[in-house]
Amino acid sequence: MELRVSDLSCARGGLIVLQGVSLTLRAGQARVLRGPNGSGKTTLLRTLAGLQPPVAGRIDAGADAITYASHLDGLKATLTVRENLQFWARVHDRPVGDALLRMNLDGLADRPAQALSAGQKRRLGLARLLVTGRPIWLLDEPTVSLDAASVALFAAVVRQHLADGGAALIATHIDLGLDAEVLEMAPIAARDILPQGGFDEAFL
């Protein structure tokens, strides 16, 4: 289990925003992405998750090793907490296990997702990570709308995941108390500011 990225370039809206991204993430390692808004954190995570093709470079990870949590939780309002989680578990062909308990949602299991608070929804969205059973977690601002206690809970879950041989790449501004290296976005921002990959550039 290893995520190896070499010389990756990512584009957003026809502009190259990231250039020469190289990183290696081994089992048990976490990396925190840090940079101002618009510095390409989401673009990087989406590219790594395979949701958009890279402009250049290689991404090597095992098959079905990556799971991605965006700022949207992918919850269905009319399904209960348990049903939401069960769905993702069955999609990944895995048991739900103790995911509800670990994200402190067991008391809410039969409540429809629309009756949850923002923080509770977020916790449910993060519980999905546990049922996918995938080793590499790509997290985009996972702590938004979580209170201090929930952040601690989530940090513990991530630590456990790392101890179990997982890995995580996290875009966050909060210190999760993880033993994680910080990956600053500024050095990998596209230096050559000319929009080389831009779709209109082909016409010049």
């Binding site: 949701l51 949207l72 919850l75």
Partner: peptide
Amino acid sequence: HEDGSLDLLVTAPM
């Protein structure tokens, strides 16, 4: 697409 589950489905093993 709105609630983000389409993105998650695309990355699912299907």
